[in-house]
């Protein structure tokens, strides 16, 4: 049945055309919001010591924002290339879960599947899984994936040129901007108390190991906190429910300040709140 289908044919009933148009509009707005902050990636990559070609290669070939920021963050902090690769790879691990959720929707094979895999990021997954109709979900995925890809790469190049022209990065506060970028990527993921505890523990581990271990290693070691907690914790689900959100707002114990209500849980811009990617604010985690 799958093989006999035309790529553009609908399974049984035609989805309403306005649902498709809405998905495309959503895809375009997410693409614009995400693409624009490619400027900050480009500028920060140059500030971390990469040249224009290396910076654009990262956005073209790696194309997963969190990993890209982590890669330049580790290198910029004097970390070894191996530590940068490991950190970027670990941060990209969530994309495997996104792929597993998308594959049954996309039914892509061969080169098309490879392209779908490359375009599997927070935003394309969020838009695709927010749609009710599988056909519209496919539309949402491809429009978002391709839209973010094009704009992210264009704005990365713009940012790299700007960063190059600025010269000394610390004079312009670009080192602080890099730290703020990581905080911005982290923020929408801090909704649950477990996540807040892990974040606090990770900071402590990374800073405690800094004088003892080579640069880059303390960051990787912090990931162990997550593995230990995530493996053992049988408790409330991370991606919580709305009542958890409200509860968490009231008292963020220790560690990072309690976040505001998860941006997507009430706006429903990116779908069901019980999914990991639905936490991710469009434009905050390519």
């Amino acid at each position: 049945m799958r093989s006999a289908r035309h790529p553009h044919a609908s399974p049984s009933s035609q989805p309403p055309p306005d649902a498709r148009a809405a998905a495309i509009r959503q895809a375009l707005s997410v693409s614009a919001a995400t693409g624009v902050y490619g400027i900050s990636f480009g500028a920060l990559a140059v500030a971390a010591g990469l040249d224009l070609w290396q910076t654009t290669a990262l956005s073209l070939l790696m194309f997963t924002g969190g990993s890209q920021f982590a890669f330049i963050g580790v290198l910029g902090g004097g970390g070894a290339a191996g530590a940068a690769v490991a950190t970027a790879g670990l941060l990209g691990a969530r994309n495997a879960l996104y792929g597993a959720a998308l594959a049954p929707l996309l039914h892509a094979r061969g080169a098309r599947r490879a392209l779908a895999a490359h375009l599997t990021i927070d935003e394309s997954t969020a838009v695709a899984t927010a749609q009710r109709d599988p056909d519209v979900a496919r539309t949402g995925f491809w429009w978002t994936g391709l839209g973010v890809f094009v704009l992210w790469n264009v704005f990365t190049a713009v940012g790299a040129l700007v960063g190059d022209a600025l010269g000394d990065p610390t004079r312009w506060g670009l080192d602080a901007a890099a730290a703020a970028a990581f905080l911005g990527l982290l923020w929408p993921r801090l909704a649950s108390r477990t996540a807040q505890g892990v974040a606090a523990g990770a900071v402590v581990v990374a800073l405690a190991l800094t004088p003892l271990a080579p640069a880059g290693v303390p960051i990787l070691a912090a990931a162990a906190v997550a593995v230990v907690v995530g493996w053992r914790d049988p408790g409330p689900r991370l991606h919580g429910h709305d009542h958890d959100d409200r509860h968490d707002d009231d008292d963020g114990p220790g560690g990072p300040p309690a976040p505001g209500p998860a941006p997507t849980s009430r706006g429903a811009r990116t779908g069901p709140a019980a999914r990991p990617w639905s936490r991710v604010r469009p434009g905050a985690g390519a």
Partner: peptide, 28 residues
């Protein structure tokens, strides 16, 4: 699996925030 993957993302990003905010060279 989903829990560990989500928390690894949180831990790495939080560690990166900490290190890029207060680390210079090998000291705080």
């Amino acid at each position: 699996v989903a829990r560990v993957a989500a928390l690894v993302t949180v831990a790495l990003l939080a560690a990166l925030v900490g290190v890029t905010t207060v680390v210079t060279g090998a000291s705080l």
